[in-house]
Write a protein that binds this DNA or RNA. Structure first.
Length: 487
RNA sequence: GCUCCCAUCGUCUAGAGGCCUAGGACACUUCCCUUUCACGGAGGCGACGGCGAUUCGAAUUCGCCUGGGAGUACCA
């Protein structure tokens, strides 16, 4: 078996999409599993839509996901350059070869003429297939067009290629995930491989690049299936070895439409900004189409790679549901060390003055509030009461708790007694327990007792463990807030 | 319109003729734990799109229908 070489070839017309990330992951896994190479190629032939910011975003996102490439624009490699726009000078040679071998021809049709053909086809409810009117132009006719100032595009002759390599116009290939796939080539129009401005089209450039980069397996979205037939014909016409193909189902939004901006985040970087961990995102996206044999869903890329088999991927589309991603993210957050979490949470705490807390207090706050975090940004609204002298009392805490006679009584007693308490974790734990017991004997439920203190000190009816809160806030602030809540 | 792909709980999936009164995970829900929220633990709800065919036997094979998705550019 020849060396496995797979690639991810994003087009920098946007930030790295989660769908692209999943495709990259499956390629990466395949390379890892087979000991092959994973290559990154930037397909920026459409200068109009390309921007450096997007290229940077693609690099950064892929790196953040840990999908490191063996060859690519930045790291180089034997078969560079790995940026398509830097490869423009190598395509004409292959166009010429196709021209010489009769697999391609010049087309002088104007956009208007092409448009008219298309309209005619739709009017007659016929599928549009290029008329091939330029396939057998005489030299005189070509000369005439050139005199008119027309510049030719180069089209690939589907029929010539088909007849040269297949007995039947219906051609087949075996897809690694979908199995036998077929297409009637007579329905494929002679597509342009080189635009009149001299730049190659996608279908041509990919083949040349994949061929020259010795890509052995092409794993990509199923939206490329129709391209695959065209590309196979080009490989054949060029006398090149046709790689293996594997087409993945698409990722759809919950409404079954294409995952787009209106559904929320679509780019990996957007998920990160929202507080998703790249490991969780990658793990989640791996499960869209792949299932672990042992049922253990939370696993690292290495663990996935061990059991990964491209032939076991699901052939169908899958829907991107936040519920499971959220759950997975919370699981990954739980596994983070305190030190790690402390750092990762800082970007989401910028609205607070962290200098109010020393390291011990900050650590304590994080440990006390980390449990319910689904995404890192949840921390923002979970900790306001740890900062500032006073707290904002929310409505529920005020009316349902602080306004009650019981709460007022509890607070008065608390203020009296706590004045003498030694402010250590162990002691507070004991004192509060005794406090609850005392009230329980008066017929006040433990949680009602605690609610009063919590409402006064945090302004809320729920939150982190009270002992931890008191430890972080300190005795002075606690007493101050408690007194303030007493009417 | 035409072509191609796909089709198991709401979602992600296991299942490659009898092991399936269809398994797991998320979500939802009940209970337990508990100073609140949560976490955790134990349960529950919940699916083979329809119709034919093959077979002693079909979620698993075949056909048709239906539904969903994709492609149909001198975009990638």
């Amino acid at each position: 078996m020849s060396d496995v070489r797979v690639r991810i070839a994003p087009s920098p017309s946007g930030n790295l999409h989660v769908g692209t990330a999943r495709t990259a992951l499956f390629n990466f896994l395949y390379a890892k599993k087979t000991g092959g190479k994973f290559i990154l190629r930037i397909e920026d032939t459409d200068a109009e839509r390309t921007s450096q910011a997007y290229i940077d975003n693609i690099f950064d996102s892929l790196k953040a996901l840990g999908l490191n490439w063996d060859e690519g624009p930045d790291v180089g490699g034997e078969y560079g350059p790995y940026t398509q726009s830097e490869r423009f000078d190598i395509y004409p040679k292959y166009v010429q070869k196709l021209l010489d071998d009769g697999f391609a021809y010049e087309c002088f049709c104007t956009p208007e003429e092409l448009e008219a053909e298309k309209e005619e086809a739709t009017k007659n409810k016929k599928p549009y297939v290029y008329s091939k009117r330029c396939e057998n132009l005489t030299d005189e006719q070509k000369e005439q067009f050139r005199k008119e100032g027309r510049k030719p595009a180069i089209r690939f002759s589907i029929k010539k290629a088909q007849e040269a390599f297949y007995d039947n116009p219906v051609i087949h290939f075996t897809d690694m995930v979908k199995g036998d796939l077929h297409q009637d080539t007579s329905l494929i129009g002679d597509f342009v491989i080189m635009k009149s401005n001299g730049s190659p089209t996608y279908n041509f450039a990919v083949v040349i690049d994949d061929m020259l980069m010795k890509i052995s397996h092409i794993i990509r979205g199923e939206d490329h299936i129709s391209n695959t037939f065209k590309q196979i014909l080009i490989y054949k016409a060029l006398g090149a070895e046709v790689p293996e193909f594997g087409h993945l189902g698409m990722i759809l939004a919950p409404d079954r439409s294409k995952l787009s901006k209106r559904h929320g985040a679509t780019a990996v970087s957007e998920f990160v900004e929202k507080g998703y961990l790249t490991d969780a995102l990658l793990n989640f996206v791996a499960l869209l189409g792949w299932a672990p044999a042992d049922g253990v869903e939370i696993r690292t890329v290495d663990e996935i790679a061990k059991d990964f088999n491209i032939h076991e991927l699901s052939a169908s589309n899958s829907i991107f549901e936040y519920d499971k991603l959220n759950w997975m993210n919370s699981q990954y957050i739980k596994k983070l060390s305190t030190e790690d979490l402390k750092e990762r949470l800082k970007p989401f705490l910028t609205k607070y003055d962290l200098s109010e807390l020393n390291d011990e207090q900050y650590t304590r706050m994080i440990n006390a509030t980390r449990e319910p975090l689904t995404i890192l940004s949840d921390i923002t609204d979970a900790v306001p009461y740890f900062f500032g002298e006073d707290v904002e009392i929310d409505e529920e805490a005020q009316t349902k708790v602080l306004d009650t006679d019981t709460a007022q009584d509890v607070l008065k007693t608390f203020v009296d007694m706590a004045e003498d308490w030694e402010w250590t974790e162990e002691n507070l734990h004991q004192k509060l327990e005794d406090f609850r017991t005392m009230y329980k004997e008066k017929g006040v439920k433990a949680k009602v007792t605690m609610w009063a203190i919590r409402a006064a000190v945090t302004g809320r009816t729920c939150g982190a463990d009270m002992v931890q809160i008191l430890m972080v806030i300190g005795k002075d602030k606690t007493m101050k807030r408690a007194k303030k809540a007493i009417k």
